[in-house]
Design a binder for these strands. Structure first.
Lengths: 333, 333
DNA sequence: TCAAAAGTGTTATCCTTACACCCATGT
DNA sequence: ACATGGGTGTAAGGATAACACTTTTGA
């Protein structure tokens, strides 16, 4: 239908898609809000809430995003942050090329958990279902050693295909930077870089859908993680990386916490986001000494152990430090 | 002309503007590339290279950007990074509202200095001409104490105007976070936050152009810094903030340096970008001990003092550390 | 000779990390 | 009793910031 206009349109007109990666935490598991399959159009892969930006009805991009989310999931978003604008024609070019070009703007939104919040149209999904290689809370995930590294090492050995651009880094160097090795460890912030590498190597279902040549090699092997509609998994990867980075220098973690919480709950939330274990004693000290939280005076019982003091976010922290966030100190177990 | 289509267009079609903040360093001064006034359309304020994204001719957003820059300034860009997508209708709404809505995508590009590089259409401008309050290399700039703080403090005292959104932070809190006070110092990364605050307070020529109510108060006083076309100064602010942050954890500084350089040149470059003085001895030690550079074995004479060893970027640094960048240690003088 | 930049050495301090250990509750 | 989480103390090691000082050139 919209393709009819392609002859008369000024060549600079495009459609803008607004996409929301809405994150929350339930039972220590980070969740992403998925719209029901009925809402999904061209495939039956899971999709984020999304819709076109219509300047006539939406004064700003963010207002447009909020209204699509409200319409599709009945959620009134709080914290919202723009991530990135994707405009590759190469991606998702399965049909004819006449289709109107879509540019996707991805957003990250954070919301406190409320199991009754979604009244229609939405459903939560553990984000590690899409990125099983990103959860290192129980040590190195099996999928990394068994599935990913062997295939990526094989891919890195293959000669560059003709069409690919001359890159400043070799495939082997990128592999090392993204997935680490003996020397360099796992950098939990490089979620997008790892996703892009797996896509390029043809190991994701999205690569096959988009007819990437590298995907032809693995026709028999299962793809990694659950795929998503259009470029939505790429947007979620961007969201995860951004959140994992931001948590360290902005108090965004409190967008995911209840008003009052124990330090253990806070640690579990941070661990869920980071996909890593933290050192308990140091976490507590760093959080308290940074002035990020203050005790409410109350305690919570039935924690499984001794009753825990309840804390709340200390807003003044934002005024005292240039970069108020959760200092991270990893832990072996 | 394009307005003619507004009746028949699908309501989701918009025009995307691609805008490049191209930075370089000349004589310790960070420079931004400006296109010649002839290229500028609706006003005679300085403009960045920019042009619409036309998916028919440009396969990706970045390719579109590169081709506009090449056409308007004859520069072949190297390092390019997307910054942000701005879509406020409130901004730049001086004419009738029928105009096709423009969404602006801002990019940061870095290029080594070459005075002969720009063969036509472009001109370099010291970026502190647009942001005189951002250069703290010679201590607190006069404009901060004499012009900015008094007016902002007055603005912060004024009651919130009816139309402005309920903000999580008060005006006074935002002022303190952006411009510091006795307790909290100057955070050189908050360039955009400061720009936005000055815009909201009506102290920038752009605010008056956009008919911001707050700008009416200051009709008699001079606006701060040189204004720019459309939202280009906002894009440059985003670029400066991003670059000041990124320099600390990515080796982007070498995009601005010659192949071989002295540590003093490198320090002067970093100081120019950060708008701050660094401690000489510690800078050298941090850079060398981080393995970011390696000596070439050569020396440079005529430095004004003892001959200096030449260094080059050590690419392996990218493989060894998760966040290879310039550790900053400020200095009083 | 002297200014200017290059470069080395040392120390105090703070932050991070790791380890050891005790406390209070529910089952 | 003991498992589980809550909570404190302290010491080693590393990174940072500050200071003092020597070296080598060009003007």
């Amino acid at each position: 239908m919209q393709g009819n206009f392609s002859n008369i349109l000024p060549s600079g007109m495009v459609e803008i898609g607004l996409n929301a990666a809405i994150a929350s935490i339930a039972d220590d598991q980070p969740q992403i809000l998925i719209v029901k399959p009925e809402e999904t159009r061209t495939d039956n892969w899971e999709a984020l809430p999304f819709g076109p930006f219509t300047p006539r009805t939406h004064r700003t991009l963010e207002i447009g995003l909020r209204s699509w989310v409200k319409e599709q999931t009945d959620i009134n978003l709080g914290y919202v942050e723009q991530l990135y604008t994707f405009g590759d024609r190469g991606r998702h070019a399965q049909q004819d090329e006449i289709e109107p070009h879509i540019v996707s703007i991805g957003y990250l939104a954070l919301t406190k958990w409320d199991k009754d919040q979604v009244k229609h149209g939405g459903r939560w999904q553990n984000w590690y279902k899409f990125f099983p290689w990103e959860d290192w809370r129980d040590g190195s995930p099996e999928i990394v050693g068994l599935e990913i590294m062997p295939r990526l090492e094989e891919w890195a050995m293959r000669p560059q295909t003709a069409g690919s651009p001359a890159r400043p880094l070799s495939k082997n160097e990128r592999l090392k930077i993204c997935f680490g090795d003996g020397q360099v460890g796992w950098d939990e912030e490089k979620v997008l870089e790892r996703y892009e590498l797996l896509y390029e190597a043809g190991l994701l279902a999205e690569a096959k859908r988009d007819r990437r040549p590298s995907a032809e090699t693995w026709t028999d092997l299962p793809a990694l993680g659950r795929p998503m509609h259009h470029d939505h998994r790429r947007i979620v990867a961007t969201a995860m990386g951004r959140l994992r980075g931001k948590i360290k220098y902005r108090p965004v973690i409190f967008e995911l916490m209840a008003e009052k919480f124990t330090l253990y709950e806070m640690q579990k939330t941070v661990e869920g986001i980071m996909g890593a274990h933290l050192h308990k004693q140091n976490f507590r000290r760093l959080v308290e000494s940074a002035g990020l939280v203050e005790p409410t005076g109350e305690v919570r019982t039935h924690t499984g152990g001794r009753p825990a003091k309840l804390f709340r976010f200390r807003r003044e922290a934002m005024l005292e430090r240039p970069a108020p966030g959760v200092r991270i100190s990893r832990s072996a177990g």
